[in-house]
Design a protein around this nucleic acid. Structure first.
Length: 174
DNA sequence: CGGATTTGACCCGCGC
DNA sequence: GCGCGGGTCAAATCCG
């Protein structure tokens, strides 16, 4: 994969052959105010990426390893691409509740950034949507959220905040 | 007590 | 081959 910290906008490099992805669907909202979150600009890119350890076809491999050997079964044949959406929002809080239930599964420090990056997974059974939340060290008002995958179930919460509407826009415009 | 979070270890790809 | 950076796992812990 392309391993740049700034590759949020360099998606279209390797996906020239796959015409399935609309390469650059831009969505810019200017100065939308909700109660406590001020979205200044939201950028959205659609990219395709090669398969990694999990995908929608991972199905019932259930207990994926024994304790001793740590053999991870990989599926090298699977080359399905999953969409990734990068959002850059301006918000004071980093817990942007979009209506789904997320379970945090990791946190890593990023280079050139003093803030860690948080990894979340959708807790719905069979819904392997991941997201990662990162904030810029320069000005701590900017939060970059990267969604990966598409939810296969409806939103359960019905809060009428703007984050919810934003996520639904993401679903309906793909 | 059960589910979510924390957090260090582990894994893997890549560049040197 | 080794080190590094990024992503994930999972046991321990926390919290309702």
């Amino acid at each position: 994969m392309n391993v740049n910290s700034s590759d949020f906008f360099s998606y279209s490099s390797s996906s020239a052959s796959s015409a399935a992805a609309t390469n650059s669907s831009y969505l810019s909202l200017n100065m939308v105010n909700s109660n406590h979150v001020n979205y200044e600009q939201i950028m959205m890119g659609t990219l395709t990426e090669k398969d990694s350890s999990w995908d929608t076809g991972d199905h019932v491999s259930d207990v994926q390893n024994t304790v001793s050997d740590k053999i991870k079964m990989r599926k090298p044949e699977k080359k399905i691409r999953k969409p990734k959406h990068a959002f850059q929002t301006r918000s004071q809080v980093d817990i942007l509740d979009d209506g789904y239930r997320w379970r945090k599964y990791g946190q890593k420090a990023v280079k050139n950034n003093k803030f860690p990056r948080n990894y979340y997974r959708c807790t719905h059974q069979g819904c392997n949507v991941k997201k990662q939340v990162q904030r810029l060290s320069n000005d701590d008002g900017v939060v970059v959220t990267t969604y990966e995958g598409v939810h296969s179930h409806p939103i359960e919460k019905t809060t009428d905040n703007f984050e919810n509407i934003l996520t639904q826009m993401q679903i309906y415009t793909r």
